[in-house]
């Protein structure tokens, strides 16, 4: 008889087990599996780097440009390692990263404030919604002349451009994240009596997080580009930064130094991107929207 509670309980547990067996079976990565995953993610990247270096070397050997203009990896990579062991390099990297983080933090504050305001007040959205989208497509270098007029040759000028470059993407990510919170979840939230601040902290902000992180990632890309452009244009003599090192190398026709610093800038960009990718993937995994 199905009325017997024990029979019913077994029936229910049987169904539960059948319906959840598959995911729990594949969800346990052992150490070996984790290592295999890391390797699977790493070797194509390594292969790509080796390939690029090879092509580069072949171009140099072809004699397309003289070696003092386009040195090969055989000269640039040793130079890169010499730079890496100098205190001056780490000082320059430190200055640049400090600017990047400070600028990004300011852009974050500005972007979140504007994004929340726009999603909260309809007239504000009508007023500046499309302006935010427009600002995202502005090449940040356009702002430098005006930034230098306003702030002179100073770090503030660079910060100004970073904020203008990154904040619109951050604000845009936040507003679209909030816009796309599922109406059904909002309804469930209302039925549970979520309102006021709790509605934001417990429902809207976490629900908007995936798109917000996408906005952050894009904002970072803009901030980093603006910063590099800024350091090349707004050369502050007392503060040696990556941009400063690049412009020094150009002035002294130091092609090896130039290329070494280009590689550094690229690596920093990739590293930060990996960080955002991780954050993105963790969130997607938690939300259950990954395929794997």
């Amino acid at each position: 008889m199905p009325d017997d509670p024990n029979v019913r309980d077994r029936h229910l547990r049987g169904l539960d087990a059948l319906e959840t067996a598959a995911p729990s079976g594949t969800d346990r990565p052992t150490a070996w599996r984790a290592a295999a995953r890391v390797w699977a993610a790493t070797w194509p990247k390594l292969a790509a780097v080796v390939l690029v270096v090879l092509v580069w070397q072949v171009v140099v050997w072809s004699g397309w440009r003289p070696v003092y203009v386009l040195p090969g990896p055989d000269r640039v990579l040793p130079r890169l390692f010499t730079e890496l062991s100098s205190a001056e390099f780490w000082g320059a990297l430190g200055v640049t990263m400090r600017r990047a983080l400070a600028g990004f933090a300011l852009a974050l504050a500005a972007g979140v404030t504007v994004g929340l305001a726009v999603s909260r007040f309809a007239p504000l959205r009508v007023a500046i919604g499309s302006l935010i989208t427009g600002l995202q497509t502005m090449p940040s270098i356009v702002w430098f002349p005006i930034a230098m007029l306003l702030y002179g040759i100073s770090e503030s000028a660079i910060m100004f451009v970073i904020i203008l470059g990154a904040a619109p993407s951050i604000a845009g990510g936040l507003t679209s994240g909030i816009d796309y919170v599922s109406p059904q979840l909002l309804r469930a939230g209302r039925a549970m009596g979520l309102r006021g601040v709790q509605r934001y902290t417990l429902l809207i902000v976490p629900a908007a997080l995936p798109m917000f992180v996408t906005g952050l990632k894009q904002g970072w890309a803009f901030a980093w580009r603006s910063l590099m452009a800024g350091e090349l244009l707004v050369v502050i003599d007392q503060q040696h930064s990556l941009g400063w090192a690049l412009s020094q190398a150009r002035q002294f026709n130091d092609a090896e130094g130039l290329l070494a610093y280009v590689i550094v800038v690229l690596c920093v960009g990739v590293l930060i991107d990996v960080f955002f990718e991780r954050a993105d993937r963790t969130i997607r995994h938690r939300w259950g929207v990954t395929a794997s």
Binding site: Q184, A191, A207
Partner: peptide, 14 residues
């Protein structure tokens, strides 16, 4: 009064 819907409407991040 509490309410249940056709979709469970659980918060996926929790």
């Amino acid at each position: 009064v509490a309410m249940m819907f056709q979709e469970a409407s659980l918060f996926p991040w929790l």
